[in-house]
Write a protein that binds this DNA or RNA. Structure first.
Lengths: 114, 114
DNA sequence: GGTTCAATTCAACGTTTCATGAGTAGTTGA
DNA sequence: TCAACTACTCATGAAACGTTGAATTGAACC
């Protein structure tokens, strides 16, 4: 994944509502979810929802598909994975401690400090 | 790592100059780097540098230490790891494809498309 | 004490982002 | 075609962000 796209993804994820959106949609998997259902689930107004969905889709984190009246949204799990891969490999140069914290739970420095 | 802190980290990283800062400092490791040297390396003015360093430090991604006239900055690798861990585990519910893309290189959807 | 270097803080400005509500476009079924 | 429904777009104002240059603080050296 290119640098500019990673920045777009980070920017898109750096918002409470959009992190909730991704969290919800990841759990729905490939099947995805209709925009209206998402709005009801998360308590977002139609325009706010549309705004945030568009931001995530433009960043490449979501895909949408019209099905009759509804528009079904689903996460692009590969895009999320690639973004994280960029952070780990390119940005952090596969730093072992970053990997450890990422794979494990807390990280070495948290363990060494009481 | 808490949700609000993850949002702060994402927000801090979603900027070109700050991603460069982290990339540079990760490669310096524990030793870190003086603010002036960072500015020369990345071609940032003093106030811009200071602004971005403060943003990263406030998000908990950097630590600073005054040494004589200089202020030495170093990344908190555990914090980066924990942020990524949150994205993988909490936000993406340890989705296998996200993990695969993150550990591997490209991800399944990129492989299936030519 | 005074000077110099390093780094931060501050105010100002323009830009971008966000939330809201109203209005618009596309789809369905009678 | 019409009404009902779903989802999107637009205009507005408020808030946050990013850049700049000047002023300030802190430490070291004469």
């Amino acid at each position: 994944m290119e640098r500019s796209k990673v920045l777009a993804c980070l920017s898109a994820l750096a918002h409470e509502a959009r992190l909730d959106l991704v969290r919800l949609l990841v759990r729905r998997g490939e099947a995805g979810m209709a925009a209206g259902d998402i709005g009801r689930e998360l308590g977002l107004t139609a325009s706010r929802l549309s705004f945030h969905l568009a931001a995530l889709e433009q960043a490449g984190l979501l895909r949408s598909q019209r099905v009759s009246r509804n528009v079904i949204y689903a996460v692009d799990t590969a895009a999320i994975g690639q973004m994280i891969h960029y952070l780990l490999a390119d940005c952090c140069a596969d730093h072992p401690e970053v990997r450890a914290c990422c794979d494990g739970a807390r990280g070495l420095s948290s363990l060494s400090a009481p």
